[in-house]
Nucleic acid binder design. Structure first.
Length: 779
DNA sequence: CAGTGAGCGAGCTTCCGCTTGACTT
């Protein structure tokens, strides 16, 4: 009898399942979606009830062909794609493409890849759920409409128009970053004075230790000074001690989003790096599937974790727990991310190992006991006034899950008052405490920090926007489009005041701190700000943070069979299309123009705006008789925040520094950044040099060095044909004009000896076999 | 690679979500 064919989405899964099912089944993977909307005319027949036009994309044709021929030879085809909206749709597309009847074809699902789970799934097959498929079609069609209607609006209305895009997910992601930036720019720091008294006491081993107690915060320097004054000559007495038990519980095991957050906080990995490493761990069988929104652990996993905890730490540390997903939009087709085998604690590659350790520890901790704490709060009376000081301390009585894992937190979730609670020495009521010193330290309020990649993912997930498989790609899209940049920001120095009471003397000192420094944070570009403002103005419904949540409810209605998907799309499309048409007709071109002032020497207006090539400043108007002067903004500057003085500074380029070897040495900023121009040649300036201040003595060595480096790279030049043989990071190659061509491996040793005929032949050869790229489709 | 910044218009770009490869000139 012919074998049955079982189709899953992931090839790694296919291998495992084939082993479990044995002889009767051949298990193959379809690698995700196998069909998509064609691009011409959006791939949707708007006038025919939004009927989608599906095609098999070029890169999927091979796998589809293979599945087709296998399906023909097989006994029965079973569809085992993931149990969620997308998975159900993939099963339906497979029916369509393989010529199977969705009403009769066997469809099975499982959440974990274990023998019992799969065998029991095989025992109770169902058929494809067309309501769920239709919910997916609605999702797909809506996203295509939003993306392919909005993007062209931007192409028409933006002065800068290369590659611009808009979409349900990406545009809201940019909005979050844009609004955070403006909050930070508009933030006014307020300062308060934190009052802290330092006392001596003996600890359990009779050693003298220092601990601190806090007083009431003071809002002004005078208030703080008055309070310290009122404490001169005071006696301090413990009046009350309270001891309260407390506990901490472990977090749920990892989902994609929480893994990305912790790997970012603890290991400093970018979101995409985490995913690449997790994929490797998954493919080598070390962990379960890494794109998941489920916090669920399978029964077999729970057993394995139980054993591991009991063996390694003892029964006292074990506590079974099940976690519930907070997120309503979760589709939970998979398990949480966990080690496949808890006893396996070895991974070869060191970066992967660090990620694996994190997953292992988090999984273990999730089934471990609470940590038990004891919190002590002591009240201390001041004899000279009515105020009271509070000393608090925390002692860990039982470490529980903290033995293996402690979760890090985001900056923005840590409040200012919070601090690591230390230990208090044993105190008794009526005990007199000798004061060492008392301090009132000025502290400033802080704006929310800028998003990191991971904290943005967290926010998107909270809003139900995007899916585990798209968080990393979304972050790279908004950066590729130039809406967002990931970079560092230097902090600025700020003075703060400290008033000190010591030996009944009050002194004031001023110290400095750095504030506003950020590392690897997401900043909106001017383009991102301008596009966000535009979209908010004309498409406020799409830009609403709750838009996705609202339409998800409707998709749920469709999935439940309570609403027809094309009716749902119709309700959305009719008003949306009106907005699109109206915007194209009425909206002005957008440039984000901002007046900065008047140039004293010419009396002309100075403005900052978006130009064709990015943000710039301009003196004069394009309609003036004399052409206006233009200058590009620096990377760190923004149309919204640049000052008149900073703008005028930008017009100081190009600067001629002097003569070198008979030609001018001049500095300018071009399409690719700052450069030195000399003798018709150009030399890029590295970041350490500032084009506005670099001098002749610094510039000439750069010319000499770069010229030498270029010679070093050059192996041979054929002047007449304008062909060069160069050494690059991947070995020697041929350069003709702007094009590069490869040199066959076997000739790379003897590049020096190549003659022009051989080189030309190589170019022809390379042209005939162009390197494979992502296939660009033309109709 | 190293300018530009107005407007015209041909031809192009673009979405989100599901999966991995192929490998740089």
């Amino acid at each position: 009898m012919a074998k049955n064919l079982l189709i899953v989405e992931s090839p790694a899964k296919a291998k495992t399942i084939e082993k479990i099912l044995g002889e009767d089944f051949e298990v193959k993977s379809c690698y995700g979606h196998i069909r998509d909307l064609e691009k011409e005319d959006m791939g949707i027949d708007i006038d025919n009830n939004y009927k989608p036009r599906y095609i098999v994309p070029e890169e999927k044709q091979k796998v589809v062909k293979e599945l087709k021929s296998l399906a023909k030879k097989s006994g029965e085809v079973w569809l085992a794609t993931d149990e969620d909206r997308e998975g159900e749709a993939i099963s339906w597309h497979l029916c369509e493409v393989l010529g199977l009847d969705p009403k009769t074809t066997k469809r099975i699902v499982f959440h974990e890849i274990t023998k019992p789970a799969i065998q029991s799934a095989i025992k109770k097959p169902r058929t494809v759920d067309m309501h769920l498929v239709n919910a997916q079609q609605a999702r797909r069609v809506l996203d295509r409409i939003v993306g392919f209607e909005l993007s062209p609006v931007l192409w028409r209305k933006m002065s800068m128009k290369n590659n611009l895009s808009a979409g349900r997910v990406q545009s809201v992601a940019v909005r979050l970053i844009a609004e955070r930036e403006r909050e930070i720019n508009a933030f006014n720091a307020v300062s308060t004075f934190k009052v802290e008294a330092f006392f001596s006491a003996n600890d359990v081993s009779n050693k003298q230790v220092t601990f601190s107690a806090e007083g009431k915060k003071q809002t002004t320097e005078k208030g703080a000074a008055d309070f310290l004054k009122s404490c001169i000559g005071a006696k301090y007495t413990v009046t009350d001690i309270q001891v309260k038990p407390g506990k901490k519980s472990p977090s749920a095991p990892f989902t994609t989003s929480t893994l990305q957050q912790e790997a970012s906080r603890k290991l400093g990995y970018s979101v995409s790096r985490t995913m690449v490493l997790a994929q490797k761990l998954y493919e080598s069988g070390k962990i379960t599937y890494m794109r998941t929104d489920s916090v669920n652990l399978s029964e077999t996993a729970m057993d394995a974790i139980k054993n591991q905890v009991n063996n390694q730490y003892g029964k006292k540390y074990y506590q079974p727990r099940t976690f519930k997903n907070k997120n309503e939009s979760a589709q939970e087709a998979h398990e949480a991310i966990r080690p496949t085998y808890m006893e396996d604690q070895t991974v070869d590659d060191s970066d992967s190992r660090r990620l694996y350790d994190l997953i292992w520890k988090r999984t273990m901790a999730s089934q471990m006991a609470d940590a038990e704490l004891e919190k002590t709060i002591a009240k201390i009376q001041i004899s000279t006034n009515k105020e009271e000081l509070t000393a608090s301390g925390e002692v860990l009585k039982f470490d529980g899950f903290l033995k293996v894992y402690r979760e890090d937190r985001d900056e923005e979730d840590i409040t200012e008052d919070e601090q690591q609670e230390g230990m208090l020495p044993p105190l008794t009521v009526n005990q007199q405490l000798p004061l060492k010193e008392m301090k009132a330290t000025e502290r400033f309020s802080r704006p929310l920090p800028r998003y990191t990649e991971a904290s943005l993912v967290k926010k998107l997930e909270e809003l139900g926007i995007g899916r585990p498989s798209t968080y990393a790609p979304t972050i790279s899209t908004v950066q590729k489009r130039g809406y967002v940049e990931k970079r560092d920001k230097e902090g600025v120095k700020r003075d703060f005041r400290i008033l000190q009471l010591k030996n009944d003397n009050i002194t004031k000192i001023t110290e400095q701190e750095t504030t506003g420094a950020e590392k690897s944070k997401l900043f909106p570009t001017d383009l991102g700000l301008v596009v966000t403002d535009f979209l908010k103005l004309y498409f406020d419904d799409i830009m609403d943070y709750n838009f996705t949540a609202r339409i998800e409810e409707e998709f749920d209605e469709v999935a439940a069979g309570k609403m027809k998907w094309n009716n749902m799309i119709d309700d959305f499309y009719i008003p949306f299309k009106k907005d699109v048409d109206n915007t194209i007709e009425k909206a002005e071109r957008i440039s984000g123009e901002r007046d900065l002032g008047v140039d004293a020497t010419t009396g002309k207006k100075v403005i900052a705006r978006m130009g064709r090539y990015g943000p710039m400043v301009q003196i004069g108007d394009v309609n003036d008789e004399e052409k206006p002067r233009f200058a590009k903004l620096k990377n760190t500057q923004s149309i919204e925040t640049i000052s008149f003085e900073e703008a005028m500074e930008l017009f100081k380029l190009p600067r001629v520094l002097g003569q070198f070897e008979g030609s001018d040495v001049s500095i300018n900023i071009g399409r690719f950044g700052p450069y030195i121009a000399h003798d018709k040649k150009f030399y890029s300036l590295s970041k350490e040099f500032d084009p506005y201040t670099i001098n002749f003595e610094e510039a000439t060595p750069i010319i000499v060095e770069k010229r030498a480096a270029k010679e070093e790279r050059t192996i041979k030049v054929f002047e007449k044909e304008k062909i060069q043989l160069l050494r690059g990071p991947y070995g020697p190659y041929i350069k003709q004009g702007l094009r590069n061509y490869k040199i066959p491996k076997e000739k790379q040793e003897t590049v020096k000896d190549l003659n022009i005929e051989e080189v030309k032949a190589m170019i022809e050869e390379a042209k005939a076999n162009p390197p494979k790229r992502v296939p660009k489709k033309k109709k």
